[in-house]
């Protein structure tokens, strides 16, 4: 007689990490209230609304945490920006009832770029990102608000952002969420469908998409990244069902961008070097 054999179900580790969106939203709302109100006595937030899902989720979280009247969505189109980005950003501010303003950055960006006619797309994109951050910080100063960051974990890990621009706001609620998790959170929060369904894009060039730039879908990148961060080697990932070429794309981007996730490198000369010996937490 043969006995029935019971074996555990093997986890499919090729899936992007899951999320409980209700729990996450609650936690992030508490985070925003603590960081802004309790920690800094600031009740207002400024969010750059790009028309994408990351900034939409951030605006939704801010509105829930601080109340819509304390949230300022800023649209910052450049002359080549897609009109759809502008109208999708409007969907967010209308749905939430937050404050909205539009500050065209063409004059500011071109004020510099006119002297650099040979600047390639990468340089031009970085200039636009840095001008936008200039606007967000100044608007925050004007409004007595704090700029709130919108960078997700996937783009942070892949280095797919402009250093000291997208990553510069002092508080970021979604920076430990992979893009796939941001999408699930967006659905739970009720972000307009058009923003969830459209292909993510930095909108620095016409027809640009993130996944086209990266050479991999977010779903696959998120699954690979999450396992790399858990300690899996490339060979182990391939053995468990990942495509070697895609694993290598992700690993290369991750390993070549550690510097983008740090403050500038400072020469250490003393026993009191800041952040080496002199260590104080950010909220002290």
């Amino acid at each position: 007689m043969k006995l029935p054999v019971i074996e555990p179900q093997r986890d499919d580790i090729t899936q992007a990490p899951s999320i409980n969106p209700e729990l996450t939203a609650q936690w992030l709302e508490a985070f925003l209230r603590d960081e802004l109100i309790a920690g800094r006595s600031i009740e207002r937030a400024v969010v750059g609304l790009s028309g994408g899902v990351d900034s939409a989720v951030t605006a939704y979280l801010c509105a829930r945490a601080l109340g819509p009247k304390n949230v300022y969505g800023v649209r910052m189109p450049y002359k080549h920006s897609s009109p759809a980005s502008l109208s999708d950003a409007r969907l967010v501010s209308e749905a939430l009832g937050i404050n909205e303003c539009t500050i065209e950055i063409t004059a500011a960006a071109d004020g510099y770029l006119q002297f650099e006619p040979d600047a390639d797309a990468r340089r031009r994109g970085n200039v636009l990102a840095r001008v936008r951050m200039l606007v967000l910080f100044d608007q925050s100063a004007k409004l007595g608000a704090l700029p709130v960051g919108t960078g997700n974990k996937t783009e942070r890990l892949l280095g797919y952002f402009t250093w000291h621009a997208d990553d510069s706001p002092p508080v970021n609620p979604i920076g430990d969420l992979y893009k796939s998790q941001v999408w699930k959170l967006a659905e739970y929060l009720g972000v307009p469908r058009a923003l969830i369904d459209k292909a993510p894009s930095a909108d620095l060039e016409a027809d640009q998409t993130d996944e086209g730039d990266l050479g991999i879908t977010y779903a696959k990148a998120d699954a690979i990244l999450s396992r790399i961060l858990e300690g899996y080697t490339n060979d182990q990932l391939v053995t468990r069902g990942f495509d070697r070429g895609e694993v290598e794309i992700v690993r290369k981007r991750l390993d070549s961008t550690h510097w983008k996730r740090h403050l500038p490198t400072t020469a250490m000369l003393s026993n009191t070097a800041i952040n080496e010996f002199y260590l104080r937490p950010v909220d002290f």
Binding site: S18, L23, W27
Partner: peptide, 11 residues
């Protein structure tokens, strides 16, 4: 310090 948002009704 809390972590783990993947499943269930709590961290």
């Amino acid at each position: 310090p809390g972590r783990g948002i993947e499943d269930g009704g709590e961290l």
